[in-house]
């Protein structure tokens, strides 16, 4: 009797254990490879993994989506693009050659598509964003950007490539380059007056005018940049405080246009009363009053010039 009871308990325990293990395996199986997921869902999941830094899982999801779609399908392109980005930007374990191959497949399959534009830009960025210890070959980088701009002139990727090209020219800090950037950016603004990148482009123009010691135009371009700026209303950190500050400082110290300087210092003080720049902005207003008072006195002949 004792033997049979113990044996029963023993057997029950084993059964319970086996059922548990099977249950766990079953659940794991359901999670991993149960009903085949839709390619769109797999691509979406792949990006979720990517943003979590789970690059292997991301690549796996994108790969499954690729296998489950025909070459001409949009999800197929998205799956290839997702894999390309993951191999390109995963750290550690990046495989640039494989990424390049995948980007090129996207371009070859749908050369006029959105993803082809972004893939071409990614290939240019690959040349630009190099590992620590290396310097980019800027001629090659610019040639790659130029290809994006020429093939996709009105596309956001093409316009981003344009901006990167001009930024790379600014790095040389030569008068000729500043003039070159000025000419290109002026043309860009004329061609694409509604480009979402026009604020950055105006800011570049302001930078060039500053370097070329043309302060009035530097100030005007900075104001144009502010007026064209896109604001992300959901980001509490995005503010115009530094725009106001820089415009006021250029107006005060580069142009001597105290009216404009006062107007922008005042906007800063009024719109951002809690910002750390409020105190120096108020000091600036006092400073300009003092300078004007001193110069007026000098002009009246009260003090020697």
């Amino acid at each position: 009797m004792r033997f049979s009871c113990l044996s029963l308990i023993h057997r029950t325990s084993r059964l319970f254990l086996s059922v548990s293990v099977l249950g766990i395996l079953g659940l794991a199986g359901c999670g991993g490879g149960g009903a085949p997921a839709e390619p769109a869902a797999l691509v979406s999941r792949g990006w979720d993994y990517y943003r979590l830094g789970e690059f292997t899982a991301a690549i796996e999801a994108f790969h499954r989506a690729e296998l489950g779609t025909a070459e001409a399908a949009p999800e197929h392109l998205r799956a290839l693009y997702g894999q390309a980005v993951s191999w390109h930007l995963r750290r550690p374990g990046e495989d640039l050659a494989r990424a390049q191959d995948l980007y090129e497949r996207v371009i070859a399959l749908a050369p006029e598509s959105d993803l082809a534009a972004w893939s071409l830009l990614a290939l240019a960025r690959m040349k630009h964003v190099v590992p620590v210890g290396q310097e980019p070959d800027y001629d090659a980088v610019r040639a790659a950007y130029r290809e994006v701009t020429e093939r996709f002139p009105g596309h956001l990727a093409g316009q981003e490539a344009f901006v990167h090209t001009q930024a790379s020219l600014l790095l040389e800090e030569s008068e000729a380059r500043f003039r070159e950037v000025l000419a290109a950016t002026r043309e860009f603004v004329a061609t694409y007056p509604d480009s979402p990148f026009r604020s950055v482009v105006h800011e570049m123009m302001s930078h060039c005018y500053g370097e070329l010691e043309r302060p009035e135009e530097q100030l005007d371009a900075r104001i144009d940049a502010l007026e064209a700026a896109e604001t992300d209303p959901t980001n509490p950190w995005s503010s115009k405080v530094m725009d106001y500050w820089y415009i006021a400082v250029i107006a005060e110290f580069e142009v001597g246009d105290f009216d404009t300087a006062r107007a922008y210092y005042a906007k800063l003080i009024e719109e951002y009363p809690a910002d750390i720049h409020k105190f120096p902005a108020e000091q600036a207003l006092t400073r300009m009053d003092a300078v004007e008072a001193r110069l007026r006195q000098e002009l009246r002949g009260d003090t020697p010039p």
Binding site: L226, E254, F258, D259, E298
Partner: peptide, 28 residues
Amino acid sequence: VLERVRQRLRREDRQARAAPAESGRPRG
């Protein structure tokens, strides 16, 4: 820059003597 401010003040001074003052309009 100081010279530009001086010139503006001279101009404002002349305008003030010639006609009621009109202060400069800030850009933008």
